[in-house]
């Protein structure tokens, strides 16, 4: 079901992509820093030219091979979605809900059975984090449950 994202043959493709990324970054830096005053532009310009040189050199001597062999595409996508969802939940709903979802999601993606046991354990860990940060460290975490509990 889950496909390997890469095998050793296209690994060089990733290295080439890195070189292109480096070159693109170099051009972007050089363009953006053009409008800066002299003293502020000096170092970014040097970095820009060095990045450009680095991009060329990366194309010729990539060094150690990129290794995406063990990465599974489907799980990578799920991880990405989960983390973005967790950050969004922390921002708009609360840290308590966001962390709980993150915990359950992580464990589930790694193959832990999704059951009452996991949900309760997630609850316990989130409560512990809330108590340590809110109660002991004075960093009140926002959230519908944490908020009234530690304010």
């Amino acid at each position: 079901m889950s496909r390997h994202l890469g095998i050793s043959a296209p690994a060089r493709g990733f290295d080439l992509a890195l070189a292109l990324l480096c070159g693109g970054l170099a051009v972007a830096v050089l363009i953006v820093s053009r409008g800066y005053p002299e003293s502020a532009a000096a170092l970014p310009e040097i970095i820009g030219y060095l990045l450009l040189a680095c991009a060329v050199a990366l194309g010729c001597f990539p060094g150690k091979r990129a290794d995406f062999e063990a990465v599974r595409g489907a799980r990578l996508v799920m991880t990405l979605v989960l983390v973005i969802a967790a950050v969004a939940l922390i921002e708009w709903v609360g840290a308590d809900i966001g962390l709980w979802v993150l915990f359950v999601g992580c464990a589930w993606i790694m193959g832990y059975p999704l059951g009452g046991r996991l949900l309760v354990m997630a609850l316990a860990l989130v409560a512990l984090i809330g108590a340590v940060f809110g109660g002991l460290l004075g960093v009140a975490l926002p959230g519908p449950i944490f908020g009234p509990l530690f304010a």
């Binding site: 915990f103 359950v104 992580c106 464990a107 790694m110 860990l125 984090i129 940060f133």
Partner: peptide, 22 residues
Amino acid sequence: PLLAASIACLCLTGAYAIGNSV
């Protein structure tokens, strides 16, 4: 799985606590 999940939660909370912001 639980270890990874706990580390993830701790990392995000720690990152939040530095500046009290998302």
